[in-house]
Simulated assay, not measured.
Amino acid sequence: MLVLVVDSSTPAVTAALVEIQPDRLVLRAERCVVDARAHGELLAPQVESVLAEAGARSTDLGAVVAGVGPGPFTGLRVGLVTAVTMGQTLAIPTYGVCSLDALGHAAAATGQRILVASDARRREIYWAVYGDAGKRITEPDVAAPAVVAGQAAGLGITVAVGEGAHRYADILGLPLRAELLYPPAYALAELAAERIRAGDPGESLTPLYLRRPDAVAASIRKPVLP
């Protein structure tokens, strides 16, 4: 089955086409561009590009997998709206995966506890801790790096991954794995593969914001005249 994977929870705008076979996954095509201000402009052309590279059409898709965050409001909703629209238009199921889980899954190593952190702006990070086989140990949260460093001190963490971990490495004080900055498309697909193979019903793609958007509509109208 051909599956479209999209993620816009970080500055990396990702689209990929993955073939889910009974015993393995095959990455057929992938596009990833890092640009925190161009999610809306980049994602749709990337989807068209991966389909063209694989010689496929949108009607060949059997499912859509989307990273549901956590991530900043504006960027994250681009990927989710794209996934929901394609799922409804093509009448195919959609499956959500926590974007931090994808990094934790990709970084998993026996005997290690891993801090996954993405940049949340406002001098904060989205973060969670993962153990063997990429199993999540703490729930996703958002906090200042110094707060995370204090909470992580007693969790036996041995390494950190993600853009947020690199940006605030001096505060977190943990060894880094440089090759894992953003959620890999193949990891997102792997975390949804069991549900897809089993033919589980599609899911509502609920964004994991963890905090209110930067722009909030005023609740009280101010008078024009004094």
Rank of each mutant, 00 (worst) to 15 (best):
L2S: 05
V3L: 04
V5M: 04
D7V: 01
P11H: 08
T14K: 14
A16T: 06
V18F: 06
V18R: 04
E19L: 03
E19T: 03
I20L: 14
Q21A: 15
R24H: 10
L27V: 06
R28W: 01
E30N: 03
R31F: 03
R31Y: 02
C32F: 01
V34Q: 09
R37W: 11
R37F: 01
E41V: 05
E41Q: 15
E48W: 00
A52M: 11
E53C: 01
G55H: 09
R57Q: 15
L61S: 07
A63W: 09
R77D: 11
G79M: 08
G79K: 10
L80N: 04
L80C: 05
A83N: 06
T89N: 05
A91D: 15
T94F: 00
V97P: 07
S99R: 14
A108P: 07
A108R: 15
T110P: 14
G111Q: 13
G111K: 10
S118L: 15
Y126T: 00
W127I: 01
I137S: 02
T138M: 10
P140V: 08
P140H: 12
P140Q: 12
A143Y: 12
A146W: 00
V147C: 00
V148Y: 03
V159N: 02
G164T: 13
H166Q: 15
R167D: 07
I171Q: 13
G173W: 13
R177A: 12
L180Y: 08
P183A: 04
I196R: 00
E203A: 03
L210V: 14
L210M: 09
V216F: 01
K222N: 14
P223T: 06
P223W: 00
V224C: 00
